[in-house]
Simulated scan of single mutants.
Amino acid sequence: METADDGTSTAQSLSTWLDRLTFADLTEGEATARIIDTIAEWADWQGWRVYRRAPSVVPLPPPLRGNSVLDVACARPGGAAPIAIEVDRTDRQRTVDKLLAEAAAGRLAVWVRWGPGPFPPPPLPVHLVTRHAARRSGKWHTVSERPAPDHSTAAPVVAEAEELPWEQ
């Protein structure tokens, strides 16, 4: 939970929560939805109100009317700044602009990037949280940054076949 810092501890908490997320054989849309669901679970666990597709402070580009939406927004008690969260696989300037506008409006702006990386850092005060994933046969699966255990990477043991005596 957040202290009086600049939001780094909140972003780190979300990063730790997303590290536990695993999925396999999902389309891009399904993977994004799973990440958004996991973010909502994290915020709910914090005791915050969670809003999906919440209105942004950024207006839609013409000829559209109204405001853009955030993937997730969180209202926090006790006067803590609300959180504006966007989830993307690709590096989108429009997302950066939206999050900078949210930060200028007093919200903690968090960009959750997922995919194979690299993930260039956005300009401050936008916080970056990443979840590595890879695509195989057109479907996405999570990737752990932890190395495989030794027993998984050791060379196979080769044994000589030996005929056993036959007892009757």
Rank of each mutant, 00 (worst) to 15 (best):
M1H: 10
E2A: 10
E2D: 12
T3Q: 14
A4V: 02
S9Y: 01
T10G: 06
Q12A: 11
S13P: 04
L14K: 04
L14T: 05
T16C: 02
L18Q: 04
D19P: 01
D19I: 00
T22E: 12
F23Q: 08
F23P: 03
A24D: 05
A24C: 03
A24N: 05
L26F: 02
E28T: 12
E30N: 06
I35C: 08
I35P: 02
I36A: 15
I36W: 04
A40T: 10
A40Y: 07
E41G: 11
D44Q: 11
D44I: 01
D44T: 14
Q46N: 11
Q46M: 12
G47D: 14
G47R: 03
W48S: 13
W48G: 05
V50A: 11
V50L: 10
Y51I: 06
Y51S: 10
R52I: 04
R52V: 07
A54V: 06
P55L: 13
P55Q: 12
S56Y: 02
V58G: 02
P59F: 05
P59R: 15
L60G: 05
P61E: 07
P62T: 13
P63F: 13
R65K: 15
G66V: 11
L70M: 10
L70A: 10
G79R: 10
A80L: 14
A84W: 09
E86Q: 15
E86M: 11
V87M: 12
R89W: 07
T90V: 09
R92E: 15
R94Y: 11
T95E: 13
V96G: 04
K98E: 12
L99R: 11
L99T: 09
L100R: 15
R107L: 13
A109H: 04
V110N: 08
W111G: 14
W111Y: 08
V112I: 14
W114Y: 15
W114L: 08
P116V: 01
G117C: 08
P118M: 09
P121N: 07
P121I: 01
P123Q: 09
L124S: 14
P125R: 07
L128M: 06
V129T: 05
T130P: 00
R131N: 06
R131W: 05
A134D: 07
R136A: 02
R136N: 02
S137G: 03
S137V: 01
W140F: 12
T142D: 04
P147H: 00
P147F: 00
A148W: 00
A148G: 01
D150M: 00
A154Q: 04
A155I: 01
A155R: 09
V157M: 03
A159F: 03
E160K: 00
A161L: 15
E163Q: 12
E163S: 13
P165A: 14
W166E: 13
W166C: 07
W166L: 14
Q168H: 12
